[in-house]
Design a protein around this nucleic acid. Structure first.
Length: 925
RNA sequence: GGGCGAGUAGCUCAGUUGGUUAGAGCGCCUGCCUUACACGCAGGAUGUCGGGGGUUCGAGUCCCUCCUCGCCCACCA
């Protein structure tokens, strides 16, 4: 007899490091991940297309657990659909990430003691291009390590020539439709990044600040009286052009039309009336600073007030447009926060500071550098959003698009209903230059798809707009631009648009997801996808979001190196409820990823058992096995397989909506990936490994007809388990599947990755009676095991068990040997036939298991132990009952405590009965 | 200020339309290196299902209310 090792070439321990890379290479070489336009049914092909567009990571990003989670989810879905027979495409790509990338290069320059201005625009952009070429795209290579099955031939980049063309086309088209305009208004300005930001890029943060009450003297008042305004930003008072009160506010009615003296700047400004003022807040008097506050800007427009800018782009005080010399010389060039303090001190000195109140309010911060943003009057390009939002809103409302988990749909709808115009120009150097040219001679403005060299009207010299577009103005086109838009007849676009699922984090629902939906309707007149799957965030054990800067991150590549990509993937998928955050311990990777690693090992060992026992010669096809050849266990496991396939399909749900719209009953039912993972795990571990595999021991090597049946069924069952698990654990399942013996006549594909997804079948082989019958046998085995454990019967000690049954006598008789094998006992059907001490257990069908204990356990010793236990229980029970009957206890204790104590009493009484019976049986009267 | 979500075993979470004894993984306890697997096997313990009230024959599940966390949105200076 040869050893296990010689029967097959599987090492005792699974070593992912050795196998994963090689398997990945083979997949790529064989073109497993490549999608073919011609096979798409939309192009006359024979397969339904299934498409996922990868949320492009920043081109300079390094893989972190967030990417790991995001791309694992996508890969599970994509691999599932590929096996299910769809023409499956997963488009990978990166984002040039305007501000983020520019900031990195600026930091590098700073380290060299330089600024971008030392280089100049052209050289700076060239340097950034070089930096991106050198470091960029590394993250996509890293994604291969976790098994991402993207079509790398189609890797996109938001700043590539093709996608840049799409960006220009989108801009020009929207401009032609009157949806892009130049706006003069107050926008969010980051004084550190020196650029304007969209509303979404200026993120709220609650802070406790101060509300300063400042007295403005009333001009011409005999008693030197004043009005008091309340402000959180005293430095902006230099830009005040009025103070406003509510028109109906009796306190101030008589002041309307008069003037007050603006402190520090010493300018007379009018008192105006405007509905915008809330008389109940602060003093009911508001300083109006149109150039530095969006509300004040509106007031300024209504009252046709001047709009002086009193701050420089870098956040220092400075006299800008229309400011004259409002900022006094000693404040010029002083940072806004320092200026605030100086102005407050100065007001204190002049007795114009009435008081300072603590005040909680929210302040907006730059989403890239966290600097407090400054509202600032400037000229920017805007997209008119309301017309674009309309179809996007409708799509979710009617179910053309679903968002999972469901609760995000309300958030989405709420945002779109209150949508505001999108500031798309950025005062950066890294990005798509705005395709607008201005003629120096006739000041004509030219918006063009192609570069303009001379004015189309007068032939004069032109210069292009200095600004670049918001990064999101290129990524919102990703689903269409990566497939060939603006060429609407491009083969990929025809074959693969609309796409199917979009998988991302809720943080970019507004930045990206909703805008993609708008772009889809605006440029293709069709939604970009039908499903938005929003997953949670990866956090540490303290629920703090993982991040490099906090040092609480996990490098997915560390996990891959230590435990394998499959362990990472399984852990992530199984541990993450729909939309729920994922907690991982960065200080204990072994514990964090134990679920995945342990399960991979389990699979490996089942594989080893199978190869050692089934061997490699072809097996019979399960389809040709006759029912009368199958054992009860065979039929049971085939039934369990069927049930598992059904459960898995239910958890994954329908891949696409029927007739273009999600029906209510299926809309929120699918993509429950953790339930899918759990169903598959339960089948493999609790059914196949714990029970079925054990039943084949002893019959599989017998060389009989029955052993051929066992070989066939075990192989079939494991083959299908591997198929189910492949989307989650692609590497180990492929490795094992490659070595599986196959049915003689079966056509075996080259890869599990493209093997057909299991299909549940209604078959007499797996009827429910087999399930029920085998479950009773399992109960019997468990009962015997429990008794063995209860009485401390050594595993090596053979014992005899009797089964008494009326309803299932034949079943037990037929499977006495099997029960014995699984419980390490000799099982006899019928009465124990003596009054000797015995352990009893009743099964759910009324059958009784009896195990005589004489000669197996030391009766005297066991009796002593049991009596001791019974005595202790009696004492405890007595005390408890006494306490419960005691009035004081009942009245003092809270009702639930009393309730639980009563429950406990009941339980103890029950246990006392059981123990007493046990003592009586074992020790006699 | 508006909206949403969560609170179930020590930890992370499942618990579909209310229905038998509330589950899983990790951790814990006991016994086992039983020739696929100690990254394992067998057995076991642990739950005022956030508090209170209500509807119901029956509620972790529905309604009201309170408490505690978290998220999103927001132009009250």
């Amino acid at each position: 007899m040869s050893t296990t090792q010689e029967l097959h070439d599987l090492p005792a321990q699974y070593d992912p490091g050795q196998t994963e890379r090689a398997i990945y290479e083979r997949w790529v070489e064989a073109g497993v991940f490549a999608a073919d336009e011609k096979r798409s049914s939309r192009n006359g092909g024979d397969r339904e297309p299934f498409v996922v567009i990868m949320p492009p990571p920043n081109v300079t990003a390094v893989l972190h657990m967030g990417h790991g989670l995001n791309n694992t989810v996508q890969d599970v879905i994509v691999r599932w659909r590929r096996m299910a027979g769809d023409e499956t495409l997963w488009v990978p790509g990166t984002d040039h990430a305007g501000i983020a990338t520019q900031n990195i290069v600026e930091k590098q320059l700073a380290a060299e003691g330089k600024t971008k201005f030392d280089l100049g625009r052209e050289a700076f952009v060239a340097r950034t291009v070089a930096f991106v070429e050198e470091t960029g795209g590394e993250i996509l290579r890293q994604l291969r390590a976790i098994g991402a099955s993207a079509d790398w031939n189609r890797t996109a980049y938001t700043f590539s020539p093709e996608l840049s063309r799409a960006v220009r086309e989108a801009f020009v088209q929207l401009h032609e439709r009157g949806l892009i305009y130049r706006g003069h208004r107050v926008i969010h300005w980051c004084p550190r990044c020196l650029t304007s930001l969209s509303d979404e890029e200026a993120q709220h943060g609650e802070e406790v600040g101060s509300l300063y009450h400042i007295a403005y003297r009333i001009v011409g008042a005999k008693d030197h009286s004043s009005v008091v305004v309340a402000t959180t930003r005293p430095e902006t008072l230099l830009g005040d052009v009025a103070v406003a009160v509510h028109p109906d506010d009796e306190r101030y009615k008589k002041l309307i039309g008069r003037s007050v003296m603006l402190p520090i700047a010493n300018i007379e400004i009018p008192v105006i009336a405007d509905e915008y003022v809330d008389p109940a807040f602060g003093t009911g008097v508001v300083k109006i600073t149109p150039a530095h506050d969006p509300n004040d800007f509106e007031v300024g427009m209504r009252h046709q007030l001047p709009m002086p800018v009193i701050m420089s782009p870098d956040g220092t005080m400075g006299n800008g447009a229309d400011a004259g010399s409002r900022v006094p010389p000693d404040l010029l060039g002083i940072d806004r926060f320092e200026a605030r303090e100086r102005i407050v001190r100065s007001l204190e000195n002049s007795k114009q500071l009435e008081k300072i109140e603590a005040h909680q309010h929210s302040i907006r911060h730059c989403y890239r550098c966290d600097t407090v943003v400054e509202p600032r009057l400037s000229d920017q390009w805007f997209v008119k959003m309301e017309p674009l939002a309309k179809p996007a809103l409708e799509a979710v409302r009617v179910g053309t698009i679903r968002i999972l988990p469901e609760r995000w749909e309300a958030v989405y709808v709420n945002w779109l209903e209150n949508i505001r115009d999108w500031n798309i120009s950025r005062q950066l150097w890294w990005g798509h230059r705005i395709p607008v040219w201005y003629c120096d001679k006739c000041s004509k403005q030219i918006v063009s798809r192609t570069d303009v060299v001379a004015c189309e009207s007068c032939g004069g010299p032109v210069r292009q707009d200095e600004d670049v577009l918001d990064t999101w103005f290129s990524s919102w086109l990703f689903p269409i631009s990566t497939l060939g838009w603006p060429d609407k007849s491009a083969a990929p676009l025809v074959a693969f648009y609309p796409t199917d699922d979009l998988v991302t984090a809720p943080e970019i629902l507004f930045f990206w997801v909703s805008r993609m939906i708008m772009a889809g309707y605006a440029f293709m007149d069709a939604p970009p996808f039908h499903t938005v799957y929003l997953h949670g965030t990866v956090r540490d054990m303290n629920h703090v979001k993982m991040s490099k800067s906090l040092g609480n991150g996990i490098d997915p590549l560390d996990v891959v190196n230590s435990y394998g990509a499959d362990a990472l993937r399984y852990t992530v998928v199984a541990g993450m409820g729909m939309g729920a955050d994922l907690m991982l311990d960065h200080r204990d990777l072994e514990r964090s990823f134990a679920p995945g690693r342990n399960f991979a090992t389990k699979l490996w060992n089942i594989g080893r058992f199978l190869l050692a026992n089934v061997g490699t010669s072809p097996v019979r096809s399960v389809d040709e096995l006759r029912v009368d050849e199958l054992t009860l266990a065979d039929r049971w496991i085939l039934g369990r397989l069927n049930a598992t396939i059904v459960e898995s399909d239910a958890a994954l749900g329908p891949p696409r909506p029927t007739k273009g719209k999600w029906r209510r009953e299926e809309r929120y039912a699918g993509l429950r990936l953790s339930e899918f993972a759990e169903a598959a795990r339960r089948f493999v571990w609790n059914d196949v490994a714990d029970w079925y595999l054990e039943t084949t021991k002893g019959r599989i090597g017998a060389g009989s007809a029955d052993s051929e049946v066992a070989r066939a069924v075990l192989t079939h069952v494991f083959d299908h388990a591997l198929r189910l698990l492949h989307p989650i654990m692609p590497f180990i399942t492929e490795t094992l599947w490659q070595r599986l013996p196959f049915p003689v006549a079966a056509e075996r594909g080259e890869f599990l990755a493209t093997a057909p997804w299991p299909i549940a079948q209604s078959s007499s082989r797996s009827e429910t009676s087999a399930l029920a019958g085998f479950d009773i046998l399992r109960e019997a085995v468990s009962a015997i095991r429990q008794i063995r454990s209860d009485y401390g019967i050594a595993p090596g000690k053979s014992i005899e068990a009797f089964v008494q049954s009326r309803s299932n006598a034949a079943l037990f008789a037929d499977h006495a040997r099997l029960i014995g094998q699984l419980s390490r006992s000799t099982v006899t059907i019928g009465s124990a036939g003596s009054d000797a001490a015995a352990a009893h257990s009743v099964l759910s069908d009324g059958s009784e298991i009896i195990i005589p204990l004489g000669g197996v356990v030391d009766i005297a010793k066991e009796c002593g132990k049991l009596r001791g236990e019974l005595d202790q229980l009696e004492t405890q029970l007595e005390a408890l009952s006494k306490r419960l009957r005691n009035e004081g206890f009942v009245s003092r204790a809270p009702a639930p405590v009393v309730e639980s104590e009563r429950k406990k009493e009941e339980e103890w009484i029950k246990r006392r009965g059981q123990l007493a019976a046990k003592v009586k049986a074992l020790c006699g009267g």
